Amino acid sequence: MADTPDWLTQVVYAHRGLHGEGVPENSLAAFALAAERGLGIECDIRVSRDGRAIVFHDAVLDRLTGSAGVLAGLTVGELTAFRLGDTDQSIPTLRDLLTQVSGRVPLLIELKTDRRDSVHMLCRAVRRDLEGYTGPVAVMSFDPRVPAWFASRLADLPRGLVVTEENGRTLSGALRRWLALRAARATFLAYDIRDLPSRFASRSGLPLLTWTVKSRAHADVARAAAAAPIMEGPVLEELAEDGWGVAPREARS
């Protein structure tokens, strides 16, 4: 198993960037604000019809663009023409994000999948964009096939399994988690904050991140579990102002 770099658990991550009023989630504006404050950036990636890595959370466009459509059925040119809400921000590509951040802060890339389909096209699109990128970056997914794919092809890339125990707090649920972890060949876990502390997480022996931290109470749970928080909302800026988990300013220049 590849060693997990220290930076992975030593920073606070802005969930989908530092978004809020007038600044959409997973937008270049949200990522710029996060990087300016020295926060790590968590983002979501899907793949376009023509095999490009697109920064977008949902499988469909409605909630974030106000337009109907399935992301996987559209090309990169069609997708980047959409505006996010009532703003001047368009849907970015992963390449756009990498160019903007340029290694200043850590990136945590969550790959979103449809469990019925192959993950190869999505993972290959991400790998292609990461070629030559020298900044701190990690990939993760709920789908154990994703970290397993990267384990076979980019063994030095940190790769995580995203886990929730929701609707699975049974013996059979625990067994499914262990089987998923074994299949994933993950080097870290990204755990649902609602499930911490977790016996499964502790017994895995893997470095721990946690999502989505939205309050000081959540932040306290994350600290107690020694889990790097993936955060959003007012508490994110409050804790950033306190200097918790912020990258050194010289690393952002």
Rank of each mutant, 00 (worst) to 15 (best):
L236A: 04
P106R: 02
P136I: 09
T113F: 12
G66V: 11
G77H: 07
A32V: 09
V163A: 04
T80C: 14
G17I: 01
S204K: 07
L175T: 13
M121G: 13
T9Q: 01
R83F: 13
G51N: 06
L175W: 14
R49A: 15
N26T: 10
L97T: 05
T65G: 10
L39C: 06
G85H: 01
P106C: 04
R128S: 13
L33A: 15
A184Y: 02
P158Q: 01
Y133H: 07
E21N: 11
A2S: 14
G51S: 07
F31K: 05
T170R: 01
I45A: 05
M231W: 05
R95A: 15
A2L: 13
A183N: 10
W244T: 09
P197K: 05
L71M: 03
I45D: 06
G132C: 08
D143A: 11
L181W: 04
P197T: 06
R46N: 09
T93C: 08
L39G: 03
Y133G: 03
V146I: 12
L18T: 04
A228R: 04
G160E: 09
R37N: 08
A240E: 00
E232A: 12
A30P: 10
G173T: 03
F200E: 03
H15L: 06
A190G: 05
L74M: 15
L239Q: 11
G38Q: 00
G22N: 12
P158E: 00
V119Q: 03
V101I: 14
E36D: 15
G38C: 04
H15Q: 03
A29S: 15
A155Q: 09
K214C: 13
W149L: 12
L8Y: 07
V221G: 01
R115K: 12
S215N: 04
T99H: 10
T87A: 00
A226T: 10
A59L: 09
L61V: 02
R153T: 15
E21P: 11
C123W: 11
Q10T: 13
S172C: 06
L98C: 00
E241V: 12
V47G: 04
P24E: 11
S27V: 09
P144C: 01
G22K: 04
S172V: 14
L61H: 03
L208A: 05
L108N: 14
R37E: 12
I193D: 00
S27C: 10
W7D: 05
A183I: 06
G66D: 06
A225R: 03
R104H: 09
V119H: 08
